[in-house]
């Protein structure tokens, strides 16, 4: 992995800022905001799966938990600053507990997948069944299948009447995504991140070196949960309603597809994969000829079969190959090449 230098940092901030100002020119911010949120969600799984080697089938659980935690606490508190924090903390703590249970039990890949999937389903089933007036947290009714509408959306900290919505929500989301991205970057550069990657490569060896794998995996898992929770809270603010659909199997499947398509083990891949595929889904949703689950399914199958490393690594290797060739190219051959293109 390349070092973080001041130069690279500044460059990426400039690019991000330019992108942030340019994107609303070509697209509606109402469409853009969820793309960014999905990017953040993709990044959270990209972190724990791509760099930690933990295949979690339940990232949607943390996403949904963040959204619900936000909605419930926002109704009770009536101001959005503390609920945002709660929405990050609750999934993080939940992920830590769940992760501790799994990693201290030394469960393998498949079993991890089953448990995370099952936990997501428990949430889905439970939330769907909370329709009655008995299911109340504080003053917030859980609402069952219909979800929770009408909670306090994001406002400027301390000023409950100054809502952040529309364009400003887009800018806030963008900034939060960039901040989260750099936090992830910094984490991966730190000794903790390097050991996490080492655990992915060879768990036994790292444990023989004296690192506590279980604790490290648990912490990484909790960080992934926190980021997913933040994405969930932002999503709740954008949609202005939370429903049990956030916990659904298709939501979980989509997160995994984003990561596979974007490229595992890359930092930008899952973000771009998420935003790109979510946009594709949005476009496909505007026509009724082909059901868009067909496309999503086909994309997943084809990528697993033909491009298991994902788009970003593939593009990178093609780019390196072409650049490398050009550098190694002899002057005479280069002239020949030019002659061909001219002819």
């Amino acid at each position: 992995m390349r070092e973080i230098t001041l130069q690279r940092f500044t460059l990426s901030i400039i690019i991000a800022a330019a992108l942030m100002l340019f994107l609303p020119v070509i697209m509606n911010t109402f469409v853009l905001t969820p793309l960014l949120i999905y990017g953040m969600l993709g990044m959270s799984l990209g972190l724990i799966w791509g760099f930690g080697g933990i295949l979690c089938f339940g990232q949607a659980a943390f996403f949904g938990l963040g959204a619900y935690a936000y909605a419930i606490s926002a109704i009770n508190i009536g101001e959005s600053t503390i609920p945002m924090l709660i929405a990050v903390m609750v999934p993080a703590i939940f992920a830590a507990v769940l992760g501790a249970m799994m990693f201290y039990g030394r469960l393998g890949d498949v079993y991890l997948g089953v448990i995370t999937l099952v936990v997501t389903l428990i949430f889905f089933k439970f939330m769907n069944s909370t329709a009655g007036p008995d299911y109340v947290i504080g003053t917030a009714r859980l609402g069952g299948f219909n979800g929770i509408p009408g909670f306090q959306t994001l406002n400027i900290p301390g000023l409950p009447d100054d809502y952040i919505y529309g364009d400003s929500l887009y800018y806030v989301t963008f900034v939060l995504l960039v901040v989260a991205y750099w936090l992830v970057n910094w984490l991966l550069q730190s000794p903790f991140g390097r050991v996490a990657v080492a655990i992915r490569e060879n768990e036994q060896r790292v444990s023989l070196m004296g690192y506590d794998i279980r604790a490290r995996k648990t912490i990484l898992f909790a960080i992934g949960g926190a980021i997913a929770g933040l994405a969930g809270a932002l999503f709740a603010n954008w949609a202005e309603i939370v429903t049990p659909g956030l916990f659904s199997l298709s939501q979980t499947a989509e997160i995994i597809i984003w990561c596979i398509v974007g490229g595992l083990g890359t930092r930008l891949g899952p973000i771009l994969g998420a935003a790109g595929l979510a946009y594709l889904k949005f476009l496909l949703g505007q026509q009724a000829f082909i059901d868009n689950t067909i496309i999503m399914g086909l994309i997943l199958v084809l990528f697993v079969l033909f491009l298991p490393k994902g788009l970003i690594p593939a593009i990178e290797s093609v780019w390196k190959l072409s650049v490398g060739k050009r550098r190694r190219c002899h002057p005479s051959r280069r002239r020949k090449g030019r002659a061909i293109t001219n002819g």
Binding site: D109, G297, I299, V304
Partner: peptide, 18 residues
């Protein structure tokens, strides 16, 4: 194992769509 799980998950979405 993991790749087959992912590919068959893709297939499941595909069949739902069809």
């Amino acid at each position: 194992l993991v790749d087959t799980m992912l590919a068959t998950w893709g297939l499941s979405l595909f069949f739902v769509g069809i």
